[in-house]
Simulated scan of single mutants.
Amino acid sequence: MSTSAIAKRYARALVGIGAEQKMVEQFGEELARVREAFATEEFLRLILESPTFPLAKKSAILADLVDALKISDGMRAFLGLLLEKDRLRFLSQIDQTYRQLADDLAGVQRARVVSATELDDKQRQAIKAGLEKQTGKSIELTVEVDEELIGGIQVEIGGRLFDASLKTQLKRIEDTLKKG
């Protein structure tokens, strides 16, 4: 079974449980905290993913981790299942897929905007309103500044990139001139 199929299966199950218990948002936050702990503590992740380390010891370490992170019982059981089935190595993909499924359930779509300069609130609202009109969904914007764009913006939404930056337009002109 492919990595993405495994991640989808577990993420779909967790979203289903979260929806039943009205804890979709909380599960998402907890899953992100555990993923972050794995990302920052490489040794912890390696031990918990190791096929040679005894399961009982890994369970004790995971129990200490979820206690330290103040994880709910539902997420604790989910992480225990991942450990038991040797699926903790897919945690990052499960988190990413979970976030997408939870957003779909809530009717939210995330968009990443990269601008050459800082955007004011009026510009952010205009971009958000335009994207909401295009998608028919509520948009959650993440705005970043990249001065190398020279001017304009780039918008990434739903796996697509819309590039209206001056840097890209100048590159296209350069390519056209080189081709003759």
Rank of each mutant, 00 (worst) to 15 (best):
V108E: 04
S115W: 04
V114F: 00
Q134F: 10
A102K: 07
V113F: 03
D120K: 05
G107H: 11
K133E: 14
G130H: 05
A116F: 07
G107N: 09
L105H: 00
A116I: 11
V113R: 00
A129T: 10
K122G: 11
L119W: 08
Q134W: 11
V113N: 05
E132R: 03
K128V: 03
G130F: 00
E118D: 01
E132N: 02
R110V: 10
L131K: 02
L119M: 10
R112G: 06
A111N: 08
V113D: 03
D103E: 14
A102D: 04
E132V: 01
A102P: 06
R110M: 03
K122H: 12
A106S: 11
R112N: 09
D104A: 14
D104Y: 10
D120R: 05
V113G: 02
Q134V: 15
K128E: 12
D104R: 00
G107V: 08
L119I: 03
A129S: 13
Q134Y: 09
E118N: 02
A106P: 04
T117M: 11
D120M: 01
Q109H: 04
K122W: 01
L119A: 06
Q123G: 02
R124G: 09
I127E: 06
I127N: 07
A116Q: 14
D121A: 14
L101T: 00
Q134L: 15
Q125W: 05
L131A: 02
L101A: 06
R110Q: 08
A106E: 11
Q134C: 00
L131V: 09
D104P: 09
L101D: 08
A116R: 14
G107A: 12
D120P: 06
I127A: 05
Q109L: 15
A106V: 05
L119H: 09
G130C: 06
L119R: 06
T117E: 12
I127Y: 10
A106D: 11
A106G: 02
R112A: 07
Q134H: 12
L105I: 03
L119C: 06
G130L: 00
G107L: 12
A129N: 13
D121F: 01
A129R: 14
K128Q: 13
D104K: 00
Q100P: 09
T117W: 12
A111K: 02
D120V: 02
T117V: 13
I127R: 07
L105D: 09
L119G: 09
G130K: 08
L105G: 08
E118M: 03
A111W: 05
Q123D: 12
D121E: 09
Q123R: 12
A129G: 03
R110Y: 11
A116W: 13
A126P: 07
I127K: 07
Q134I: 11
D120I: 01
D103A: 15
I127V: 13
Q125L: 13
E132G: 07
K133N: 13
D121C: 00
L101C: 09
S115V: 02
A129P: 01
V113M: 01
A102N: 04
R124N: 07
L101S: 10
L101N: 02
R124S: 12
Q100D: 14
V108G: 04
R112T: 13
K128S: 06
T117H: 15
R124C: 09
R112F: 10
V114R: 00
G107W: 14
V108W: 03
